[in-house]
């Protein structure tokens, strides 16, 4: 066990670099996923029939093993010379993040108390005002829960992206396995866990901070 800590203290700067790399990949992917997923989720509340199919498609994407998705993207993205590396990993994480984000947004907005929505309409809010002042603030905790799920999920899947050269903490795990260096594998796994816990806790804090007092 001590050997793991020894390894980590010797390779401290490399581990920090990989952690930052990992964080950048996940952070940018989830940011884009939010920009795509939240508006889709909101739109789906106005079209229940379409909502069923979209959520179905998102579920199917979730069931594709990540390693298989990377494999599928290599030939496609090779056309633009991006078969491996950051781009396919980024795309995969955006896709995987869609289900929790879209589903939670859809459910959260649909579940806003009809009386509140009626009041908002009745006092003369436009659709946009209703969304920004009433529906999104009240749906915020549930939307945030979806984002947190997406982040934790992406940090885990991001570790596998090292196999297609996207970098990040997966590099330690990948190389540790090839070199049968147990300490390296464990160091990578610990890094991924700490990153997940840190990300989830900070997002939990943000969620609390911006949640309306009543919820």
């Amino acid at each position: 066990m001590w050997s793991v800590f020894e390894y980590m203290s010797h390779n401290w700067s490399q581990i920090v670099d990989l952690t930052i790399e990992h964080f950048q990949l996940v952070g940018s992917a989830v940011a884009i996923a939010i920009l795509i997923g939240v508006p889709i989720g909101i739109y789906l509340t106005t079209n229940k029939a379409l909502a069923e199919s979209v959520l179905q498609i998102c579920s199917i994407i979730m069931t594709i093993p990540s390693i298989a998705l990377f494999g599928l993207m290599i030939p496609i993205l090779s056309i633009i010379n991006q078969g491996i590396g950051f781009v396919p990993a980024f795309i995969a994480l955006v896709l995987y993040s869609q289900l929790p984000i879209i589903r939670n947004t859809y459910v959260a907005i649909s579940d806003v108390d009809p009386a509140i929505r009626d009041a908002a309409k009745g006092i003369g809010m436009t659709t946009w005002q209703r969304l920004m002042k009433v529906e999104i603030p009240n749906a915020f905790p549930v939307i945030m829960a979806g984002v947190r799920t997406a982040v934790v999920l992406s940090i885990g899947i991001g570790a596998i992206a090292a196999f297609i050269g996207a970098g990040g903490l997966g590099v330690l795990i990948d190389q540790g396995i090839s070199r049968t260096n147990r300490d390296m594998v464990i160091a990578g796994a610990i890094g991924v866990s700490i990153l997940s816990i840190f990300a989830d806790t900070s997002l939990g804090f943000i969620q609390k901070r911006f949640t309306p007092k009543s919820a």
Binding site: I116, D118, A120, G122, N138
Partner: peptide
């Protein structure tokens, strides 16, 4: 209709107050 509603007070049974405000 937006202008119309702003000129008419509206009260409902379950008060419809916005919990986030």
């Amino acid at each position: 209709e937006i202008e119309l509603r702003r000129k008419i007070g509206y009260v409902i049974q379950s008060n419809g107050l916005f919990p986030n405000m």
